[in-house]
Design a protein around this nucleic acid. Structure first.
Lengths: 334, 334
DNA sequence: CCCATTTACTAAATCGATTTAGTGAACCGG
DNA sequence: CCGGTTCACTAAATCGATTTAGTAAATGGG
């Protein structure tokens, strides 16, 4: 026997497909009590499961959204997507998570795939090369929310951290602890997040009258980081403090320190941008800049749902503050 | 203007929908060269994107599979799902990843949702209470592969690690290092994986003529682990070696050690089951039991695709060996 | 040059739901 | 008891593709 459809249920219950459909949509006032129970029983007996494809095709609504994260390996992405999922499940909307691996080609493929599947909206961690695709989405009035990264000229809601301010406080904290030779390590400056963090770094130094040394601005792909750190510590007076731009960079810095036998908190102080689940467990515990990932995910989801329901959206850019969690790694050096 | 459909393309190109459909399916021999280019141009000009819902409804095939992981917070789950996705993308199949949070209710919801969406098959990290649902899937001949955990009586392919053997070697390694008081910490013994690991532990001790002390078999929910460890170290002669059953338990053990000022490698030796990205970066580096997560994911995907294509499957149970990566945390105590 | 085959298409049915317009019977107020 | 309303449904169109059967024109062999 093939798959059970609504027609089978209708026949078994002795009613028309229309009535079964009304039943499934809980519009019970359309039928008598006994009809309702007959349909109920037929469904149970046949173990009928509705076909969402057919339903979605007719309704032009899939009750599904997509989220395309930059790189699922970052804790931040995981936490955001978890929040988005939690929010939508409460509104009977399913979430499909896709990992673009920070690869514009892959991202483009996923956007096309999700739209072909007719998802009702998208949350995107955007990459610059796909700007025209985003413009197209917006032109079509397709519900979309951007996350974490700002692309100029995009007239769509953005949810991001106060990267500049957060980095500023971290650097100010270093300075308060007596540091003057402070380095910042980021991935290549291709997205706004990294630029904003670098700007916060520069501002803090300038305000304190500390010269900005180009050598202390390290930006490279993860794979290149080891040799860049090598260079950084080969100069005449190497940094006494390092800000690592995200969790994956932390791993690299820790690896470098281990290999070179540089003790964190003694050879140099350390702060990381991002939520690191084991930050308080390593020795010494690492000072972190915690983003409000969960709140940001919720907010993005809410903004997306509003668009899907054709509601107006008040502000286009929502910035969330970060929290500096001070631990031993950023204390004054021994 | 509403959404562009195949009818719009057909009209613009001056052909019928059927021909456009043939074009989309690359059956070019059905049309003349110039018709083909006319359709090509119409599609480009209108920026037409096919609707997968309609296509899937007709074809009774979505070219999409689902994977329901036990808990996405485990590194193992992430690596497996990544492998599954990589495999399927090469075969033009999309993968939807769902996180059941080790919650049978949630898992059930996801299975229903994915089936309603008509996915072509499922890879599941199963939980015991949903046994009847799995039996139902198998009875319906629905393509399914189980991962990581074995439920007896399920006549469906299983891909899992050699948990027993791997744990055996880890414990044997402890014994070789002179340990006799060895504890094993796992989450509750509700799934086969944990039972198999416990059995491997027992076997190794028995073979070496070491008495099995119930106190050394710690099983509890993550939230309860701290107090259980407290008890474990309160007994007259506490363990000198601990095997942590997975990555989340490692975090708990490290946290406990930190709080109690017990130094790993001095107060007790440590081995963890699972791939831990920062295992070699903590002090001392932690010995791990590495599962072949990527290979397992690939294999599961392959087995699922075979079922989807109605091919025979040779063996029902595939076990993958683990690798013991020895680092300082499991050396003889100082 | 005629009939058969091939070429290059098209019309219409179909997938499994939703939804709108419509229908017959019961009810009901005046 | 008669016209209007309500009740409890049903028939049929529809969503946007795929696919099968069919057709008109061109080709080609004898």
């Amino acid at each position: 026997m093939g798959k059970i459809t609504m027609a089978d249920v209708a026949e078994k219950a002795g009613v028309s497909k229309s009535t079964v459909s009304q039943f499934l949509n809980k519009r019970y006032h359309y039928m008598r009590e006994d009809t309702r129970t007959r349909i109920e029983e037929a469904i149970k007996e046949l173990n009928y499961q509705p076909n969402y494809l057919a339903r979605s095709l007719k309704q032009k609504r899939t009750s599904t959204v997509g989220i395309i994260v930059g790189n699922i390996m970052h804790r931040f992405s995981t936490e955001v997507s978890r929040a988005v999922e939690d929010y939508f499940i409460q509104h009977d909307v399913h979430t499909i998570v896709c990992n673009a691996d920070n690869n514009p080609e892959k991202e483009k493929k996923y956007i096309e795939m999700l739209r072909a599947k007719q998802v009702d909206g998208l949350i995107i961690f955007p990459t610059a090369p796909n700007l025209d695709i985003y413009q197209q989405l917006i032109r079509e009035n397709y519900p979309v929310v951007f996350m974490d990264r700002k692309l100029s000229g995009l007239k769509a809601p953005l949810v991001a951290s106060e990267n500049n301010e957060a980095t500023w406080s971290a650097i100010q904290h270093f300075i308060d602890q007596g540091h003057e030779r402070i380095a910042i390590v980021t991935e290549p400056l291709t997205i706004s997040t990294r630029l904003e963090r670098r700007d916060g770094y520069k501002q803090a130094l300038e305000e304190n009258g500390i010269e900005i040394k180009p050598d202390f601005l390290v930006s490279a792909e993860i794979k290149q980081i080891q040799q860049e750190l090598e260079k950084l510590f080969a100069i005449e007076s190497p940094p006494t403090a390092i800000l690592a731009g995200n969790d994956l960079l932390l791993i690299e810095v820790l690896k470098f320190a281990k290999e070179k036998n540089l003790k964190i908190g003694e050879a140099f102080a350390l702060i990381v941008f991002d939520n690191i689940p084991f930050a308080h467990l390593v020795d010494p515990p690492v000072t972190t800049i915690k983003q409000s990932s969960y709140l940001m995910g919720e907010r993005a989801a809410e903004l997306l749902l509003k668009q899907i329901n054709n509601q107006k959206i008040e502000a286009l850019e929502m910035r969330f503050p970060c929290e500096l969690i001070i631990r031993d790694s950023s204390k004054r050096l021994k």
